[in-house]
Simulated scan of single mutants.
Amino acid sequence: RTQHPGAQIINAYGPTESTVNITDHRLDGTEEGPVPIGRPFANTQVYVLDSALRPVPPGTTGELYLAGEQLARGYLGRPALTAERFTANPHSSTPGARMYRTG
């Protein structure tokens, strides 16, 4: 919690595989408790999925997947790791769409 009420704080989240920032949450300095990672930027999707890649209900443990325009193509010179982490996106109607499994 900040000691500066009225200050605008932005919690930005995103791994390098998604051009660093993929979500943000703006705080006004008066919030208490855990800070959410926020909502995805335009042309970006964020999913919390189970092991069968199905969305989980809010508050349920799952794995975070990122998708959209900001996603990298994969890891240079590491095809096995790319195949493991960058998977087909079953939640997109765009042919060839992929998503990144954050781990």
Rank of each mutant, 00 (worst) to 15 (best):
Y100E: 00
P34N: 12
G6K: 05
R1P: 05
S92F: 10
G103M: 08
R54H: 07
P58T: 11
E31P: 06
G59R: 05
P79D: 02
G38H: 09
V20R: 14
T16F: 14
T16E: 14
Q45I: 01
R85W: 02
A67I: 06
G68Q: 03
V20Y: 13
R26G: 04
P90G: 03
T61D: 11
P36R: 07
R39T: 13
V35W: 04
E32W: 01
G68R: 02
L53R: 12
G62A: 05
V56A: 00
R26V: 14
G77N: 13
R101A: 15
T87Q: 15
I10M: 06
P95K: 11
S93M: 03
R98S: 04
P90H: 05
R98D: 03
G62Y: 07
V48P: 01
P36C: 03
R98K: 13
R78V: 06
I10T: 11
G14C: 10
H25I: 03
A72S: 10
Q70E: 05
Q8E: 13
V35G: 00
T61Y: 05
R73E: 11
D28M: 01
N89W: 01
G6Q: 09
D24Y: 15
V35P: 01
H25G: 01
H4W: 10
E69T: 13
A88R: 09
T19I: 03
L66A: 07
Q70I: 11
R73Y: 03
T94Q: 14
G74W: 00
A97L: 05
L66Y: 13
T44S: 15
R54N: 13
G68T: 02
V20P: 01
P95A: 13
Q70A: 11
I37F: 14
Y75G: 02
T87C: 10
A80V: 12
E84W: 03
G74T: 06
N11W: 07
L81Y: 00
S18F: 12
R78M: 13
L81W: 02
D24T: 14
P5S: 03
P95G: 09
A97I: 05
E31L: 01
T102D: 07
Y100T: 05
R85Y: 05
L27I: 02
P40E: 03
T44Q: 11
Q8P: 01
E32S: 15
P95N: 08
S92I: 10
A67W: 07
T94V: 11
N89K: 07
E17P: 00
E84F: 05
G74K: 00
V48I: 15
A42T: 12
A52K: 15
R54M: 04
G68F: 06
P40L: 08
E31R: 10
D28H: 04
G77D: 10
N21I: 14
G59I: 07
T60I: 03
I37T: 08
S18L: 11
L27W: 00
T94S: 08
G68V: 06
L53P: 07
N11E: 06
S92Q: 06
E84T: 10
N43Y: 12
L66E: 01
E17R: 07
